[in-house]
């Protein structure tokens, strides 16, 4: 029994080690943060050398990149998109809007903390974060995956009621 557990742990570790080299991102570009992504993935900064490539549908993607502020209308779509993705899946909060609302801190229509509604693995602070900061965020996520600490999707499954209640409060579902 012990041998089997050790083998399984080793298997998961090897898989995590390989998995971190291939991350496909779904860029949810409703806000100004999207403008920093083209330089990140094209010639100058080239995210593809880490295996990070932009993809177009939620079924194929691993990273949900939330670029900038989320208002109440887009939060509904964001949750749908997140739940369509296949685990293991990771969320990156991009820019200060996803941390505390940023410059929209007193707006009635903006969701201030993304963390309450979706499990965020990595935050990239800044307004705007530069391509270098974005790459640093990706590298951090890769490190977390390698160490087995990027467990946002497990957290979402285990605390599903908590997240749903928070979502219900805002969306009035």
């Amino acid at each position: 029994m012990e041998l089997q557990e050790t083998l399984e742990e080793g298997y998961v570790e090897i898989l995590d080690h390989l998995r971190k080299r291939s991350l496909w991102m779904l860029h949810y570009c409703t806000a100004c943060g999207a403008i920093e992504l083209p330089p990140t993935i094209t010639s100058r900064f080239d995210a593809e050398r880490f295996g990070i490539a932009p993809f177009v549908t939620s079924r194929q993607s691993d990273i949900l990149l939330v670029t900038g502020y989320i208002n109440i209308k887009t939060l509904r779509r964001l949750i749908t998109v997140y739940e369509q993705m296949l685990p293991p899946k990771y969320v990156i909060g991009f820019g200060s809007c996803t941390i505390n609302g940023g410059i929209y801190w007193d707006s009635y229509a903006i969701v201030k903390r993304l963390d309450l509604y979706l499990p965020v693995d990595v935050y990239i602070a800044g307004c705007m974060p530069t391509p270098m900061a974005v790459l640093e965020g990706f590298r951090t996520l890769m490190k977390l995956i390698d160490e087995g600490k990027a467990n946002g999707w497990k957290k979402y499954q285990e605390n599903y009621e908590y997240y749903k209640e928070n979502q219900r409060k805002v969306l009035k579902w």
Binding site: L15, L18, R19, R21, S22, T42, S43, D46, E48, R49, F50, G51, R59, D62, Q84, L86, P87, P88
Partner: peptide, 24 residues
């Protein structure tokens, strides 16, 4: 004029896809 992914990147992609936990 990019550096580009490693030569075995498609293999890594396939391993990642086959090791997904759930399917729809």
């Amino acid at each position: 004029r990019r550096y580009g992914p490693p030569l075995h990147q498609p293999l890594l992609d396939i391993i990642k896809l086959l090791s997904k936990k759930e399917n729809i």
